[in-house]
Nucleic acid binder design. Structure first.
Lengths: 346, 346
DNA sequence: GTGAAAGCGCTAACAG
DNA sequence: CTGTTAGCGCTTTCAC
């Protein structure tokens, strides 16, 4: 039953074959500079020919770190998380770290319990995407002295390291764009308002209206939940208003898709009769017809940045927690039209 | 610098506190039966109070296994993979396994190299979603004696353990449904034809036509790639035919969305003017308007089954490779209409 | 039932 | 530059 070991070449096998001590082999593996070139080359050749591959468990045990980063996500349903993971993946892969995936599936309790169990042992650091309630486990994390970065969490006045996007500015930019196109009645479908990013987008929308001196009709703001079905019903509500909006700004692309469905179902055309703007710029935004004008969040970049920050913390634990906000940008596509044109057409 | 260890309670601490040897503590952790109940309870209490958590690295090193399953996916972009992962996750979590995630991002070379590196050491088993070319690393896997299951790979005549869906039957069912509705000219948008599942779906479509004695116009079959933009252009091609189809069956939901866009852009209504069927039943299929009639693949179930199979192999390595096909089912929603009604309307 | 002892494969001082 | 020597925390025989 000891066969399990049979196929595995260890550092000792390599050492024997190369005629050096196994410490030297270890040095070669870890790119330690104190090895003469000829020795190094000989060892490398032997490693190659024997097909040696480092045992991460042993390395972790001995070295006190695992080279594994834990990634906690709420879900993998939408392209949104996928984009972020792509960035994380790229950065971590380059640094020889592996990714351990944990999905909370929105269950609130699970988040904290995962963190607790991860904090001891198996991972060197933690990346938390869209954490709902970091307060619940911040203490654990700090006590265990484990590095972590929050991604897309807009808790205000908190001291955690985090990377997010300029949600408020994004909301502002999109609204201003619609205003410049001549729209005055702009419907807004919010995200889940308990989330900071959703509040920020709403604030940006309101600010833009205020700056232009446009009266903010509360009727035009509908609470959403970032999901397509609610985007659909919210848009339907907006369209049923006595004075319906000429444009709808949804707090994410998926909601915008729902809104587009509703608009079409009412027999209206996009953008001829009504303009639509989304938020996120997931891949689908450029695949749907008409292609969706939206506020781009640099999701992959956010993942990259978070990973890089974490790696930095790992290298230099005294590093202070940083909060990074990446810039959003308005991506203009086909789903909006200026109100002048609209009036002419009428 | 030895602080790293400071916070970590080990088996030895527990043993001392409970007044037993650390072997006994190990037995308790592993549910070994040779521990008297009072002893076991005392140890458990101490573990709890000290906040003990097993060190997976050490366990892996000593025990020869890591309790980690590697998951290799091409991508996380679509909801498709997310669903599968949800199933895997549920099953693995219950069995106390962790999930290490590797995304190949479609790069062919990466797949094989990941497998090679994973095979030695870090994981106990491998789950491969939509593997492109398992032949390239089957040898490595077998030589290393590492268990693996392919998910949604329809290589024919191969001996690997795999779980998939009844793609052919699914293609058949959907086509037959359209035929029963009176459609005779049914457009078909294929998936990436180098993939077995895409071929199977096409075969099912053709078989259904043949069984009904409907002539299969090759013009009506367009090669797609499972992505929305190609679904859009393929549908446009179909609609431009001298005799356009009255229904379009796309090989996955995302392609169907593209087709829906194309249809609407041509000023046609779904399902009044033309019917649409998809394949997969991703969440969005029931969120779009009209809701999409589609062939449901039990994705979560596939993930669950694969995970369960893998765990079984791990327990009983002599287990023979199995190939499981889960049943698809036609989900009827709003995107299709019978041709009689259509004629009446005209 | 319980304990003692021998590693798992590797890193990290410390010598030389 | 290279080798020696301790462990990292746990599982697993093998005794008692």
């Amino acid at each position: 039953m000891r066969f399990r070991n049979s196929g595995n070449v260890t550092i000792i096998d390599v050492a024997r074959e190369a005629g050096v001590s196994y410490t030297t082999v270890s040095r070669v593996i870890n790119n330690n500079e104190h090895v003469r070139l000829p020795t190094r080359e000989r060892v490398m050749k032997v490693m190659e020919s024997l097909g040696y591959e480092v045992n991460r468990q042993a390395r972790g045990l001995a070295g006190g770190r695992s080279n594994i980063i834990g990634l906690l996500v709420p879900d993998l349903g939408t392209g949104y998380i996928g984009e972020i993971v792509r960035g994380i993946d790229a950065e971590l892969g380059a640094a020889q770290y592996d990714l351990m995936l944990y999905t909370t599936h929105q269950r609130k309790g699970k988040e904290a319990s995962y963190v607790a169990s991860l904090a001891r042992g198996s991972v060197d650091g933690l990346l938390l995407v869209l954490p709902r309630n970091p307060g619940a486990y911040r203490d654990i994390l700090n006590r265990q002295n484990i590095a972590y970065i929050l991604i897309d969490h807009q808790g205000i006045g908190e001291a955690d390291a985090a990377v997010g996007a300029t949600n408020r500015q994004g909301g502002y930019d999109a609204t201003e764009y619609l205003l410049r196109l001549g729209h005055r009645r702009i419907g807004f479908i919010t995200g889940t308002l308990e989330m900071g990013c959703a509040q920020e987008r709403l604030a940006g929308y309101q600010q833009a209206l205020a700056d232009r001196g446009v009266c903010a009709d509360p009727q035009l703001v509908r609470e959403g939940d970032f999901h397509q079905p609610r985007g659909y019903t919210a848009a339907l509500e907006l369209l049923s208003l006595p004075k319906p909006p000429t444009a709808i700004f949804a707090s994410n692309d998926v909601s915008a898709f729902g809104a587009m469905d509703a608009i079409r179902e009412r027999g209206l055309r996009i953008p001829d009769d009504i303009s639509v703007v989304g938020f996120d710029d997931i891949a689908q935004a450029s695949s749907v017809r008409p292609t969706l004008t939206t506020v781009r969040q640099p999701l992959e970049q956010m993942g990259r940045t978070a990973a890089r920050l974490l790696l930095e913390c790992l290298k230099n634990p005294s590093h202070l927690a940083k909060r990074v906000e990446l810039a959003t940008s308005l991506i203009v596509r086909e789903s909006c039209r200026s109100i002048e044109t609209l009036t002419e057409a009428a």
